[in-house]
Design a protein around this nucleic acid. Sequence first.
DNA 1: CGGTATCCACATCGATACTG
DNA 2: CAGTATCGATGTGGATACCG
Lengths: 127, 127
Amino acid sequence: MGEGNFERVKPLSPDMFAPGCPSNLTPFRIGDKWAGLVVQCLEEGPRRFSELRVPLRGVTSKVLTETLRALERDGMITRTAYDETPPRVEYELTSLGRTLFEPMEACRKWAAEHLPELVAAREAYPG
Amino acid sequence: MGEGNFERVKPLSPDMFAPGCPSNLTPFRIGDKWAGLVVQCLEEGPRRFSELRVPLRGVTSKVLTETLRALERDGMITRTAYDETPPRVEYELTSLGRTLFEPMEACRKWAAEHLPELVAAREAYPG
DNA sequence: CGGTATCCACATCGATACTG
DNA sequence: CAGTATCGATGTGGATACCG
């Protein structure tokens, strides 16, 4: 409650959307901090700009716009603007974008199974 | 010839090691440009510092050192220094590091199948 | 051989303010 | 609602030089 549409995006593991979580992995972390998360949010269906801002807590509209444009440019998502007031824009995975599901699942599975080991190693590391 | 040990690292797809190739994806592209490639190089066995510099063309020793330290800190690789002259250091995947194979394979498979579509979309994009 | 030590260019990200 | 426009902090990667 008070969290808006956050519950529409079912978390796949406890802190998957937490900043810095290594499960933000996916084929699209090519120096882009948010693209993988956006794709994850869109896996369940089309989302509006403001709906994406909710689970991606902390992202500014500027950065979210840049991320969405990059994904659109690479053919991963479509942008559909409806001529209404107030304006409504929906983002949706393309068929190409949906092919990302498999590798992302593999990465999420890895994170779910091995993240604790990574964290433990990091904490045990001198320094 | 003249390429040193490059052929020891069998390329999994034509330009997998090319700079900017989206197959450099893997769980370790968390803002790190080279870690995924390093893990890939180590999948076939232990490698020396200078052996890693060959396939990762363009990486400086400074950046390679940082990358290796980060992977070591996260428990993905071990560093073994042999007390010889000239010095010899070997890097090797840990058992945790080897678990990265599955998600990385999934990413490589994705790239091999869908990279052309991404590139085509990018070229067709206005601007 | 296997690194360190500096310095620097560039890009990404974020904060803030404003708009149709 | 869905952005755009600036500006600035931060940090990552690269160039170069040097060391045990």
